[in-house]
């Protein structure tokens, strides 16, 4: 069932991205491009470029786009909901039951470790895209600079 798969995949992406933005893109790259072949790297970098230039959280933009490409409007809805539901539940529980969430030492320590990983992702993603999109980027540079 495509819609369920979209929802679950994006729920997984939503549940494991810290730091938002580009960290999420590298997980989408892995789940939707590498593993499931839903979209190509070039499409993902295009949608990221569009997401950058339109308002709203980038993760939502990417989820809506990928969902739409797979299963039309219902797909877009499922993927977008998928990305939101985990973080909604987590934050809702925190706001109800934890007053000093940040003072829980285990979480603070784990987060410090995760921050290191997020930095590495960003570097990895940029090198990866540099390789994959080299042609389009080259073309982009020459288009912008009117080199040819």
């Amino acid at each position: 069932m495509m819609l369920l798969e979209l929802f679950l995949t994006f729920a997984q992406i939503g549940a494991f991205t810290f730091g938002g933005g580009y960290a999420m893109i590298s997980i989408i790259e892995d789940e939707c491009v590498e593993k499931r072949k839903w979209i190509t790297s070039d499409q993902l970098s295009t949608i990221t470029a569009i997401a950058e230039s339109t308002p709203g959280p980038m993760a939502i933009n990417c989820a809506t786009y990928t969902g739409y490409m797979q299963a039309g409007v219902p797909g877009a809805i499922c993927a977008t909901l998928g990305v939101i539901v985990p973080s909604f539940l987590i934050i809702y529980l925190i706001s109800r039951f934890f007053d000093n969430f940040l003072e829980i030492t285990v979480i603070a320590k784990a987060f410090k470790g995760i921050k290191v990983a997020v930095g590495i992702f960003d570097c990895w993603l940029s090198f990866f895209w540099w390789g994959v999109c080299c042609d389009t980027i080259d073309k982009g540079c020459s288009d912008v600079l009117w080199l040819d």
């Binding site: 991205t17 993760a59 973080s87 940040l102």
Partner: peptide, 11 residues
């Protein structure tokens, strides 16, 4: 808190 929990920060 939003930064140290998973998901888009805005959401």
């Amino acid at each position: 808190v939003s930064e140290s929990t998973p998901g888009p920060i805005m959401v």
